[in-house]
Design a protein around this nucleic acid. Structure first.
Lengths: 148, 148
DNA sequence: TATTGTTATACTCTATAACTATA
DNA sequence: TATAGTTATAGAGTATAACAATA
């Protein structure tokens, strides 16, 4: 049976994703943060204070990994963590002033990298791309949910 | 400045890629191999014997990582490695009989996972998706090449 | 000198599971 | 009992660089 890696969707998606991530990670090195940290910061910038569990869903970072990441960001002064008043089990994460300042400095760079990645595509193509990627994620996670 | 993670292409690509990779990795666990190993095997299945450097390009795996991975696959009896006669610096990697048998057993599973990931998409959409993902990879790696 | 590949180190993320505290 | 997080451990990939062998 013939199998061509260059025509195989999971490979193409993963290769594109890894490629973007790796190159942007190098940009983030200058700020002393990792890509998952940037995800956390941008999610908080957009959505405001979040519970750890919700942040895990938004950023697609494993809860246990996220727990360590936010602890490290807390030590670095980028976020603050406090117990929720409504549910004492929950931890609320917020951007600190410094974290917000850094996040706002990174946003333009992030948009530049996005532009570079989608260079030459029409608005329609980009829109289609986003839709299809969301469907892939939904399909895969949905199947996962069934298997669990 | 507003920044929405859920509308940001690098995030969407990476999320979809990681999601597919993680779920398929669990399928591969049954065969006792990792996703990068499967990449190597499928590339060799499709393209035949390869130099390590070429295999690195095809699979998008770092050379130093690939060196260790193929060494481990060699120990597991999945591939064989030998020096090239034409260029004694180069190492040629081939699937062993057992490696080929395993790869051929995995191909149908891989195609099933691909089908699940792209469920509900038309042929045209899938074709568009592949083209756009290839362009992203080209754009990013091209920019990388310039920066280096 | 440049290229092909190997090896070592330090770091990050993942997967898993045991654990605490609260609901 | 179930949920929200924390912590520890083992394993895999990445980045980097030093290195050997060959071109």
């Amino acid at each position: 049976m013939r199998f061509q890696l260059g025509d195989y969707v999971p490979y193409l998606v993963n290769r594109a994703g890894v490629s973007i991530s790796n190159t942007f990670s190098r940009e983030l090195d200058r700020f002393g943060i990792t890509l998952p940290m940037w995800r956390v910061m941008s999610a908080l910038l957009d959505e405001g204070e979040q519970r750890l569990g919700d942040l895990s869903r938004i950023t697609a970072i494993e809860l246990s990994t996220l727990s360590r990441i936010t602890a490290s960001m807390d030590r670095a002064g980028l976020v603050s963590r406090r117990r929720s008043g409504e549910d004492a089990r929950a931890v609320l994460i917020t951007l600190s002033k410094e974290g917000r300042r850094m996040a706002e400095a990174i946003v333009p760079k992030a948009l530049q990298w996005e532009s570079a990645a989608i260079a030459g595509m029409s608005e329609d193509e980009v829109k289609t791309l986003k839709g299809l990627l969301q469907r892939i994620y939904g399909n895969v996670e949905g199947r996962e949910a069934v298997l669990r």
